[in-house]
Nucleic acid binder design. Structure first.
Lengths: 347, 347
DNA sequence: ATGAAAGCGCTAACAT
DNA sequence: ATGTTAGCGCTTTCAT
């Protein structure tokens, strides 16, 4: 018993209907597709009635094959963090209203380093199923190079989400990262902090670079403020952080480019015997802390749902509308969410 | 320029390859599908070379149409909560290893009450695309009735996740709910609590009923323990809760059947001027609090990722293996995660 | 070792 | 107002 073809009786096709009604396939096709203006009322009704009775459903595979349009989008975004899960949710809500559905897939965090191979595999699954376009969140800028070759060569419309890619000109939707950096700096400055630390991952991720940029710009204009920068603070930079916390010039506030990093930093600070926010304020971004974060983290709501909706909107325009203009860039503003982890500088 | 067919030059088919190689379609088909044991080495190499050079990709739509097997699963699970996002993530990880990909869709929380119509629409999107099977998390037991008729009639294999449905006999994967209830009660009893409250939503959700059952069973066996039950505590039951909190027989510990409810309860308790866990302990389940939960919530890790993996495993067996036995039931155990919201009863 | 032909479910151009 | 025919990309008999 082959899957999908369990009950032969159930496999109702237009032919079935045609035979039942005593007309041709063509007639059925035209009537069901509402291109049958010329057909007799009686015939039309009969066809519809039979189709309904037999619970006929069109075969989208055939339609896709013939027309080249599948109304199916390839979405390559992990749902493993709340942030991206909500981006996906936003995309879904727009697709729902536009008769589009997504094939979801993403590359797992490359364990065993077979990540690259799997990326290709997933991409092929999408291409083979003839998706009309792709929405993609790049893992790292380097890694995704291979994606583009494949997608690009086939002229498959592409919308990039969250992390910008160099030298790729397609639609992009992300956060207003420089403004996040700026507002982070302002927030901490307002609280009286002058010794600041930025923890990022700028080597790999564009969002980190932009946030750093916005952050430092404000600080450079603020009298008496100083800013250290450590990249990869959850990796190689770890030692540097610990040294800093123990040293003379220990910062009084840390801005981490994203919440997961902020959460780790918070724990590090607490482990070092310092208090948050008493000794050190910690600020993140993304609003995606885990449930066992020691205390409510001050962060930015980046409105991931809206990011998803916007991406889906651009996707639909680019794929199905004529006026596919040049590449567009949409930056969704974020909102500061001051919570318990940032406080005024104790003097 | 039709979407999906942008560059005609790029539309490489087996025919293209056949012409380029000076052989027939049949030859190409058999060689590329490795059913060409009888072909000359030279021919084979040539075909593979051309296919690679032209970046040929098989058309999965055609294949699906002909064979009735699409290697595509319909997954109807919202990614709007971390819990389900992780279930989806678990499913994905198993599919990845099994050359299967998911069409993702779900019914939004029926605003405007057009939910039912949209459910059908999504289901049709899946059926029309000829998914090999469906993995579904039921919204409420009532609502999903219509789903089954459609799925059932077409003999589409179905795996249910998280919430059990009455009188539907398919594979089910969920949490060991009675044990969650049991362990919740034990935890609170051990902490010295005797006046307990269960907040659930048993009218709609099976998980709530089972957790309540396990909870009460332990309490009924514990000397001196009493247990009130309020259903729909975030809705109609709200007043009852507030009254209880102000009254003489105010409970000292509350077990809520899921975290979102627990979080609301916690806020209610705090608003009422009581302290958590000083006056009242609050326990939830699911490990999916929002980032602004006032303090770390004690809860259960239900291992949603494993739930997803298990569901995907059952799905693959049921859909692609001969031995599709009767309906199976897998209950994934949960682990208590004691955090700050539960504490020993003050005396 | 290779080809020709029929057919999957459906659409569209071309009849009548 | 309805039918005939060709064809989409591919697989699968049935030849040779």
């Amino acid at each position: 018993m082959k899957p999908g073809v369990q009950n032969p009786r159930e496999n109702v096709t237009m032919k079935t209907i045609a035979e039942e009604a005593g007309v041709t396939l063509t007639t059925v096709s035209r009537i069901l597709n509402k291109k049958g203006g010329k057909y007799a009322e009686r015939t039309q009704e009969k066809i519809f009635e039979i189709a309904k009775r037999l619970k006929y459903r069109p075969n989208a595979l055939v339609h896709g094959m013939q027309s080249g349009v599948t109304r199916t989008a390839g979405v390559m975004i992990p749902t493993s963090s709340m942030f991206y899960a909500q981006v996906v949710s936003g995309i879904h809500s727009v697709f729902l209203e536009n008769d589009t559905i997504m094939l979801l897939g993403w590359n797992p965090k490359s364990k065993h380093d077979k990540g690259d191979e799997q990326e290709r595999q997933i991409l092929h699954q999408l291409v083979d199923r003839r998706v009309d376009g792709v929405i993609l969140r790049p893992g790292s800028e380097e890694m995704e190079r291979s994606y583009f070759e494949e997608i690009w060569e086939r002229d498959i419309p592409l919308v990039i989400v969250d992390r910008e890619m160099q030298q790729i000109s397609t639609d992009f939707v992300g956060s207003a990262d420089r403004e996040i950096g700026r507002d982070a700096a302002r927030h901490l400055i307002e609280l009286g902090h002058r010794q600041l630390l930025f923890v990022g991952d700028g080597a790999v991720v564009s969002t980190s670079r932009y946030r750093e940029e916005g952050f430092r710009r404000v600080l450079s204009e603020s009298a008496g403020a100083s800013c250290k920068v450590i990249n990869n603070g959850v990796g190689e930079g770890e030692d540097a952080i610990l040294q800093l916390l123990r040293g003379e010039d220990c910062p009084t506030a840390i801005f981490c480019y994203c919440d997961p990093v902020a959460e780790v930093m918070m724990k590090r600070v607490l482990e070092a015997g310092l208090s948050v926010p008493g000794d050190i304020s910690v600020l993140g971004s993304g609003n995606q802390v885990t449930p066992d974060c020691p205390l409510p983290l001050s962060t930015f709501d980046q409105n991931p749902h809206l990011i998803g909706k916007t991406a889906a909107g651009l996707y639909l325009e680019r794929v199905y509308e004529q006026n596919r203009s040049g590449s567009r860039r949409e930056l969704i503003p974020a909102t500061l969410l001051p919570r318990a982890s940032t406080a005024a500088l104790a003097r």
